[in-house]
Measured scan of single mutants.
Amino acid sequence: KKRTSIEVSVKGALESHFLKCPKPSAQEITNLADSLQLEKEVVRVWFCNRRQKEKR
């Protein structure tokens, strides 16, 4: 499966949402994916990866 490159503006939106809520619910992920026009899975994985980055 190909990697999804996320635009800078979208990254900013994801980042600001992450600061408010690092573990969004499935519903929040769906809403966020719809508003940013990304697949739910891409948003879910982004949050997962971002939480791991926070641990490092």
Rank of each mutant, 00 (worst) to 15 (best):
23 K>Q: 07
10 V>S: 08
8 V>H: 11
11 K>L: 14
15 E>R: 00
25 S>P: 04
31 N>Y: 13
42 V>R: 06
37 Q>N: 12
18 F>I: 00
13 A>C: 07
36 L>Q: 02
22 P>A: 09
24 P>Y: 00
15 E>Q: 02
12 G>L: 15
37 Q>D: 13
2 K>C: 05
36 L>W: 03
16 S>H: 05
10 V>A: 13
30 T>P: 01
33 A>L: 01
25 S>L: 03
36 L>D: 00
27 Q>S: 09
56 R>H: 06
24 P>S: 01
19 L>R: 12
27 Q>E: 12
25 S>D: 12
51 R>C: 05
32 L>N: 01
50 R>H: 03
54 E>C: 05
18 F>Y: 13
1 K>V: 10
53 K>Q: 12
36 L>Y: 05
22 P>T: 15
38 L>P: 00
40 K>A: 14
36 L>R: 00
23 K>I: 11
21 C>I: 02
2 K>V: 11
28 E>G: 06
26 A>L: 13
51 R>L: 13
38 L>I: 11
12 G>R: 13
17 H>M: 08
8 V>W: 08
45 V>T: 12
8 V>A: 12
49 N>G: 06
32 L>C: 00
11 K>Y: 14
9 S>F: 05
48 C>Q: 15
41 E>W: 05
1 K>R: 06
38 L>C: 04
22 P>G: 07
33 A>D: 01
40 K>V: 14
20 K>F: 04
30 T>V: 09
28 E>H: 03
37 Q>M: 09
21 C>N: 06
41 E>H: 07
18 F>G: 00
52 Q>E: 14
18 F>N: 00
21 C>V: 06
19 L>H: 07
18 F>Q: 02
13 A>E: 10
7 E>A: 09
7 E>I: 08
5 S>Y: 15
35 S>M: 08
22 P>Y: 04
46 W>R: 06
56 R>E: 15
28 E>N: 04
30 T>Y: 05
5 S>I: 09
17 H>L: 07
27 Q>R: 11
54 E>S: 05
53 K>Y: 05
44 R>Y: 03
5 S>P: 15
47 F>M: 08
50 R>C: 02
16 S>R: 12
25 S>I: 02
40 K>C: 12
4 T>Q: 13
51 R>V: 07
28 E>R: 04
40 K>M: 05
17 H>E: 07
22 P>M: 01
12 G>S: 15
21 C>D: 10
8 V>S: 15
7 E>G: 13
12 G>K: 12
4 T>I: 12
16 S>L: 09
38 L>H: 02
19 L>P: 00
33 A>K: 00
18 F>L: 00
28 E>K: 03
11 K>M: 13
12 G>H: 13
26 A>G: 10
39 E>V: 03
40 K>E: 14
42 V>F: 11
3 R>H: 06
